[in-house]
Design a protein around this nucleic acid. Sequence first.
DNA 1: GTTGGGGATACCG
DNA 2: CGGTATCCCCAAC
Length: 211
Amino acid sequence: MIGNSSSWSRLEDKAFERALVVFPEETPYRWEKIASQIPGKTWIDVKKHYEDLVHDVGEIDSGRVELPNYEDELGLDSAGGWGSATESGTSQVWFGSTGKGKETTERRKGIPWTEEEHRLFLIGLQRYGKGDWRSISRNAVVSRTPTQVASHAQKYFLRINSIKKDKKRPSIHDVTTNATNHPISAHDLMDPNPFSHPDSPSAYHGFGFPM
DNA sequence: GTTGGGGATACCG
DNA sequence: CGGTATCCCCAAC
């Protein structure tokens, strides 16, 4: 078994992430279709991989944020994340100038992010680190521009911090109290990339592509 | 009528 | 380009 189904190369991962976008959640035989895009993988492999990713992402979204500034130590994480907005068809985009208005420098209405895009965003966050919107946009959330990703990130982290502050309700009693215990540091979310990083998605390395 | 969420844009280093 | 501030539309309250 040279081709271990558990090992996902970067290329396979790329294909996987791309397929996630191509085949949304409602897709009938989603995993089969996604697997068909990745040679050597069965739909079971794909499903497993996806669940692994979602689980990983869920941990972060729950409160284990990578901001080194905040040491979060709450024991609850059932606050969940977005899992409550299965809004379908509520996205009436476009600005209200349907027929009457200037179409020059109008402010775009804004296309709401889908959960799929958000997941990809979080995945990209882990793989490339916070701040590298360029890479995230190119390799993870292909359907969004770096600016859009950055804007989304701004709101996302703003919200995370707000929630945390609200839950925590800082009291002077908490001061440096939790600093004593940090036996767990396994989640080095801002990791420089655990798995080898010898790959070069392309020859470019930050030059010659004005988005 | 006011607030706040969510996205885009403007401004700055 | 990335970070932050601000604007704008809209749905709740």
